[in-house]
Design a protein around this nucleic acid. Structure first.
Lengths: 213, 213, 213, 213
DNA sequence: TATGAATGAGTTTTCATTCAT
DNA sequence: AATGAATGAAAACTCATTCAT
């Protein structure tokens, strides 16, 4: 259906299958996704899918990995570790939202699926932790540059909140065709960075803080 | 198994079933959850479950609603709309994390499940939107109190980021037994509010902002 | 198909299913046997089979066990351990062949199937070993009664040969409708016992034995 | 994998394939045996297997035939029809067990497998019948040499029992690496021949025989 | 000669769901 | 009110077998 040509080399077919699978997974969710449907979308018989990409689980993981890789490239390609931290953050976010906005069927949706379904959740959780680590580290570097330091736990919470906020905005971006990735990135910088910066400069929010101080 | 089929009144039975269902859903996820298992956990035969709570989907929705209701109560019970906005936020967050921390099998898990699975996703999305609205509104009120205003879109993004950050931290809270809800709430205030406040006071983050200013 | 009645108690249905399964297995062999066909033969839907008797493997084992039990009863019921060993052997054989002859679809065929297919083979091998042990023991007792003894290994080989001969004759019995179980038993006694007796009396066959001695 | 696709002559390739197939069949049984695996073991692509040896069934039969032929040679090569019957039997058995002991994969797998699986069973049954005939004939000749005769049916039963005992011992031989073929053959002669001889000499076992006589 | 690519057809197994009692 | 008995429907996965190159 998707293609007419027969007898293509393996690498090509695999990409077709991944494309098909990603669409199907994105549309119906992991469970409701149907191996028959995936095969049909790819213009291939089911056994080919199994032969090339294995089990449904394995196939899903393959999709996840391909999309994660692409996203990573898209982000890594625009972040330069010599820049000041807020510029890094900004570029990273812009790259991230741009990618998500461009591939509305890709990463973000799979990610949603995977987060709640073992055995993918664990794998994803690891990726996520890695990303949180990276961000926390950048923040620590930025602090060090200002001669300050903040407890690691604190930093991780900031990073985690940041990631969560990013996911949340990405979700909306995916579901809202007219939304502009660049604007989303800008807003997120506004919502997050300004506060993070204050924290990094030593300000603390306290239950009974004196607001005017 | 859980109880000895004692000819209980309908409302009690229903609660038992919901308890059982929530555990099962939390443990295995919506799809892998098994109606047989739920019935057994509830100490009831399957037809009873169907008679009282309907289809698997309906049952899940019932679970969702009960937990959402309880969470809402928990939060609404501690927020007083006469307080200054940051205090409202703080109390709301504390209530939220406290509830999530106490019912690790409840809301957060169902929520995770539901977000990626139609037809629940839409319903959840609605709840979520409502919550974002509420928060955005509070922020607007606070601003008005300071004689300022910010475009509605901006406010919603802030609120959305806030909600996302909250979910993210709640997720970790659920998965991390030793984590203390109070501390999580405090950190979140730090990570978010400080920044939101700056935004609310008119500061803006810009691509080429002058960092030293 | 086999029955018309609906809504029968579990125990009855289980027997019907076992009957059906045994026929199917006997007719087509384990692998080629078809769960659909078994269900149909039993006049039941497939899920019932799975619900009551489990997996194809488990079902086969259940068949095996039922038939083994019946055979055992049939044999044990006619052997009296107070009789002299040759009488025990004779009665055991007669019971065995009689049973096999009467249930040509039952034990012998399943046994054939099972011997070559893991994971049943191991289980069967155990039964077989047990039977060989029992026979070897009887032989040892008989010898002791005559004040003689023979190395255990030797005895086991005799017993094993005996069992093999029995299986062989049983196989033919199953495939040869006109054959008479009683006659088969008699012949086997002739072919085996006369020789065993000589061995038990101390005679030995040797490569270069003097035949006239 | 086994060899490096060297453009070998057909006959060689065929033998390699048969070797591979026999191993696979022996290891997994006919059904579970996998054509892919066989091809891989043979270091050849699947279409080659089909081109040279045909269908899975045909391939199995080919294996069967090759092994049967070799076994036959091994036995026929050592039996001299001028020898006295017990010597013929002895040599035959020794040859048989020696072969089985040396080619554990061939015998066990093929023969064991084939006995329970149509359409091979019939073919095997024929071989078996032939062998029983041959043995019965030898026995008849031996009897004639002594001026005696025994009903054909009787002889066949003896032969059949003999074959069964042989198979049984062969099976154990296959499963018991430390067992010595020569010893097995000796024991079988002891267990079987002594009795057969008595029968051939006119003794009969009877239900109520006088044991002391 | 030799093979990577491709598939039709079938199997076991599982579940949500509903009668009949 | 309550349940054991029963099933329709579907989904994942496998394999022997054959083209097209």
């Amino acid at each position: 259906m998707a293609s007419v040509g027969k007898r293509l080399p393996r690498s090509v077919r695999e990409q077709q299958m991944l494309d098909a699978a990603i669409r199907e997974f994105a549309q119906h969710g992991f469970h409701a996704a149907n191996m028959d449907a995936i095969a049909e979308r790819a213009g291939v018989s089911k056994p080919m899918v199994y032969a090339y990409l294995g089990t449904k689980d394995e196939l899903f993981v393959a999709c996840l990995r391909r999309e994660a890789g692409r996203l990573l490239e898209a982000v890594a390609g625009v972040v330069d570790s010599d820049l000041p931290p807020d510029q890094q953050l900004w570029r990273g976010l812009r790259g991230f939202f741009a990618y998500v906005g461009k591939h509305r069927d890709g990463w973000a949706v799979l990610y949603r699926q995977a987060r709640s379904r073992e055995p993918f959740a664990s794998e994803l959780a690891a990726m996520r932790r890695a990303m949180v680590e990276v961000i926390a580290e950048r923040l620590a570097l930025a602090l060090a540059g200002h001669g300050r330091s903040v407890p690691a736990e604190e930093l991780e919470s900031i990073a985690l909140a940041l990631v969560g906020a990013g996911e949340s905005l990405a979700d909306r971006l995916v579901d809202t065709p007219q939304e502009d990735p660049e604007r989303v990135a800008t807003r997120m910088m506004g919502a997050i960075w300004l506060g993070a910066e204050r924290q990094l400069h030593g300000e603390v929010w306290r239950t009974h803080q004196d607001q005017s101080a």
